[in-house]
Nucleic acid binder design. Structure first.
Lengths: 210, 210
DNA sequence: TTATTATCGATTATCGATAATACAAAATAA
DNA sequence: TTATTTTGTATTATCGATAATCGATAATAA
């Protein structure tokens, strides 16, 4: 209950609206009227409300009481704020995960990057962004700290949004190579070096793309 | 819309259920049936679902798809995980806020601690916990990083829960004094010292009370 | 004019009922 | 017996309609 199931109606609405926000089809400031969306999907208001609630909690939309919701605005300040938080968390996650990495893990990560390369090849922006999130999410999932994983899950939608915006302005060519290089650092066994490498990677992803 | 308004029905249900969870009236594992709660408050299911959704997102309850929700369990591991995360965030928040503190801010914080003392006097556990959250929330609100404030808001309900549990086992006598001492550190102007003091305070609040 | 109050339209918040789902237990077949 | 299918029950997920709320605008009074 109240879990947004993969196949539930609210989940479909959530996914669709999220994609449209990330792709810019629903630009910042665009109003999201429950009844309109319900009509568009030919469903009742309840699942729409649930989907909007989740988007709001992830910061993709802003809702005012008894008024409607609008697509949030992405500011440089906000990207910077998230970068600071993500930097702290991800450095921690990499530090904790790295000593536990198996060869199987590294092969998995390389496979993820391969799939990312394929998504980039066919210009599939959404898939590219999703796979990037899968790559970084690996460390949050394996760092052994559930609270930090939750914090990542709370902000990952915004990170995806930032990435989608920046990748429309800049080339994604070097994205897969950059991740392969991260794996190289992980293989090196030098934790301090890997932490710095991830931080630099994040910095580039957030600040460099403004 | 979909903001839980202070006076909306869903907000009342949320507050009541949260209080009952924190006070232990609803113990871990207790099932929360939408229809039952709706009947108890003499309302329909919609606001109940909204309240449960929020409790779930805060980690106070766990919901399985198409099954009901149950009150979550508090484990030592979980308290430790939240402590690690909170330590990182709050040290950052204090570091950023401290140089900006005015005398008015310090007087406000002292007033907060006074009110905390009063709540402790009259054995008002919930109020004590709320005021503690207000005290620490001050730094998240003023650190200038909205993402970190959001992260705090996501975990503060759990922090309140941990505190409520621990304060039922241990005395709250020294709680106000402890916070006054924190303000002393803030007045000292020594940022490094204050950071360490806050970290020690958090450590005590989380780990020491298990 | 200016301030205050009343009305209106748009949109959410809430309602009560129905449909869909998952789990457990009972029935059936091998 | 053991595995599979069916049925039943508890509970959520969804529905369509009504009530409550907000902001803006119009009407009124000073």
């Amino acid at each position: 209950m109240m879990c947004i199931l993969p196949h539930s109606i609210s989940a479909q609405v959530y996914s669709t609206l999220k994609r449209e926000i990330l792709e810019g089809i629903l630009p910042p400031g665009e109003r999201l009227i429950v009844m309109d969306i319900a009509g568009r999907f030919q469903i009742s208001q309840a699942p729409v409300r649930e989907a909007l609630e989740r988007l709001k909690q992830e910061g993709l939309i802003i809702g005012k009481a008894n008024k409607g919701s609008v697509v949030a605005n992405v500011t440089a300040k906000e990207i910077h704020d998230v970068y600071i938080l993500r930097g702290m968390l991800e450095v921690f996650a990499v530090r904790k995960t790295m000593p536990l990495l198996t060869e199987g893990d590294l092969l998995y990560l390389e496979d993820v990057v391969c799939r990312m390369g394929e998504a980039i090849e066919r210009n599939d922006l959404m898939k590219t962004v999703e796979i990037d999130t899968e790559f970084h999410g690996f460390f949050y999932k394996n760092c052994g700290n559930h609270a930090i994983l939750k914090a990542w899950e709370h902000m990952s939608a915004k990170v995806m949004w930032f990435m989608a915006i920046s990748n429309k302005r800049h080339s994604t060519d070097k994205l897969a190579e950059g991740h392969m290089a991260l794996i190289q650092s992980l293989r090196s066994g030098n934790v301090g070096k890997a932490e710095k490498h991830f931080l630099e990677h994040i910095k580039h992803a957030h600040i460099g793309f403004i």
